[in-house]
């Protein structure tokens, strides 16, 4: 536990000093631009558009930052050889990987929190204030971010190039939004090969239908059970990716 928390703290500090928070500043600009664009619309429409724009921007910026940070997480330490000194101390490789991952997710979460505060402040100026629903949406975004972070980490250890890992991560993020469509096509497909391939992809890619809280935005809110299953799915998928990452990392030589 001491090891994991030491690596966690060091990772968080590293990201903050490398100015990972600039992503949140970028969000601020997007929001400001959006507010200016929607200023011509009626009050209800303004709030709705700003809500959708803001949450979409938080998701996009968090995705880009988590994929970029986790793909480089271990590879940069291998390249700089800082990993020699870390692993020459009594640190289990699994603990190191977990500490680095949690530190990175914490850094991205802080960025998301900063963006959410700015977003909520602008929305309240336009008369929209539903903090409970907003928080639930944010927690779902966090689940998505955690899943993508774990997947990007696995890809960075499995593939030899950062660019390939990032490209695959984005590809799987896109596929993750079409899981039900892939299963539908698999059911309808006559070819055994296509059926198997589609089913394999639909299970390998994360199923983001579990986290689409915004689908319920303009209807009755889903219950606690829905949120609980989203949480269970996020933890299970993240744990599976981390377990595979540890297996790959144990075999690496430096």
């Amino acid at each position: 536990m001491q090891t994991i928390s030491a690596v966690f703290s060091y990772t968080l500090k590293e990201h903050l000093r490398r100015k990972a928070w600039l992503f949140a500043a970028l969000f601020g600009l997007v929001l400001l631009g959006g507010a200016l664009i929607v200023s011509a619309l009626g009050a209800d429409e303004r709030a709705r558009l700003l809500l959708d724009l803001g949450l979409a921007a938080i998701e996009a910026i968090s995705l880009v930052s988590v994929v970029f940070l986790t793909v480089n997480l271990i590879l940069s330490e291998i390249e700089s050889r800082a990993i020699f000194l870390i692993l020459s101390h009594p640190v289990r490789r699994a603990d190191y990987l977990l500490g680095r991952f949690l530190g990175t997710v914490a850094a991205v979460t802080l960025g998301m929190a900063g963006m959410a505060l700015m977003h909520m402040a602008i929305l309240s100026l336009y008369g929209w204030w539903e903090p409970g629903r907003y928080l639930a949406a944010l927690v779902c975004l966090l689940g998505k971010t955690g899943v993508m972070g774990a997947l990007s980490l696995l890809l960075s250890l499995a593939l030899t190039s950062e660019a390939a890992a990032m490209a695959f991560a984005v590809f799987l993020w896109m596929l993750g939004h079409f899981s039900s469509e892939m299963r539908f096509l698999a059911d309808r497909s006559g070819s055994a090969f296509m059926k198997t391939t589609l089913i394999a992809f639909s299970h390998a890619a994360p199923d983001f239908a579990h986290f689409n809280y915004r689908d319920f935005w303009h209807q009755a809110a889903p219950g606690a059970e829905w949120l609980m299953w989203a949480g269970v799915y996020a933890l299970a998928y993240t744990a599976a990716c981390l377990a595979l990452s540890v297996q790959l990392f144990e075999q690496k030589e430096f």
């Binding site: 090891t3 928390s5 703290s9 060091y10 500090k13 590293e14 050889r81 000194l85 009594p90």
Partner: peptide, 18 residues
């Protein structure tokens, strides 16, 4: 091969914890 974003004290604190 030390992480240059840390101070001398922080770096050694990390290794002491590890």
């Amino acid at each position: 091969y030390l992480n240059k974003t840390l101070t001398g004290r922080e770096s050694l604190r990390l290794f002491a914890a590890l």
